[in-house]
Amino acid sequence: MEGAFGPPPDRRDVGRMMRLAVLVKQVPATDKVKIDPETGTMLRTEMEAVINPLDLYAVEEAVRLKERLSGEAEITVISMGPAMAIEAVKDAISMGCDRGYLLSDRRLAGSDTLATAYALSQAIRKLGPFDLIFAGERTTDGETGQVGPAVATLLDIPVLTYVSKIEEIGDGRIVVHRAIEGGHEVVESPLPALLCVVKEINEPRLPTLSGKIKARETEVPVLTADDIEADESMIGLKGSPTRVVKIFYPKITREGEIIRGDDPEGAVDRLIEFLRERGII
C-alpha cells in the first residue's frame, strides 16, 4: 500500500496552503449501550466512548496528504456530540491534525442523519472555506453512511464515496479511485469536494508521544447552535424527518431442532439426515 512515503501527488499550482477538514464522531466503545425509552435515542452520558474506528482512515488520509504536500496544508477536525466528544477531536489532533472544533449544544440532541448533516454543513461554512473535506465510510454505531453525502449536498459540493485512493491532486482538481462492485472506478472532481474514504485507503498510524502532548495542549473550542447560525427548525429532534418509534430485541424466528453433541457421531448422523430431508445433499 502506498503510504506516507509514496511518491508526491501531482501538485502543480498548489502554491498556497491547502485547507483540509476531517469530520469525526465519537461512538460507544462497547456493545453495552443504554437507550432512552422515551425518545428511542442513545443515552450517551453513561458509556465509554472512542473515536469512530472508520474515521481514523479519514484522519490518516488527511495527514498523509499534508505530508505529501510538504506540510503546505492545515487540517481542521470537526465533530458534533456531547462535551466528552472533545476526546475524539483530540485523538485526531494527536495523529497530526492541526486544530479542532466540537459542535455541542443541547438543541442538537436527537438529530438524525439529515439534521446532523445540516449542523455539520453550517459549521463547515463557518470555519471554512475548505478545499477538501474527509469523512469515514460510516460510523460503527449508526452504520448509515449517510452523513457524508448529505453534508456535501447541503454545501453544494461534489461527493466522492468509497474512496480507496487519491491518485492526484492539484490545479483545483482531484482524481480518486472508488472501490465499487466489481472493481475500482477512477473519477475526477473539481475542488472543493468531500471524500468518504474506505478502510483499504491506508493503515492509520498510532499517535506519537509528541502528538499526544500536542493534543493535550491544544484547546478545542466548543461551538453552539448560535455560533454556526443554525436554523433551529433544522436541528435536533425538531429538524429530524425520521423518528425511532420502537426499540426491541429481535424475536425468535425459527423453532429448530436443537440437539446435544455429547455423542458427536450420532449428532453428525442426525445432521446428515436433516440435510437429506431438506434436499441439500
Binding site: V33, T242, I247, P250
Partner: peptide, 14 residues
C-alpha cells in the same frame, strides 16, 4: 439493527 447491532429499531418518517 441499531446501536451497533444490539437491538432492532423501527423508524418512521412521520
Amino acid at each position: 439493527p441499531a446501536i451497533g447491532g444490539n437491538v432492532m429499531a423501527t423508524i418512521i418518517t412521520p
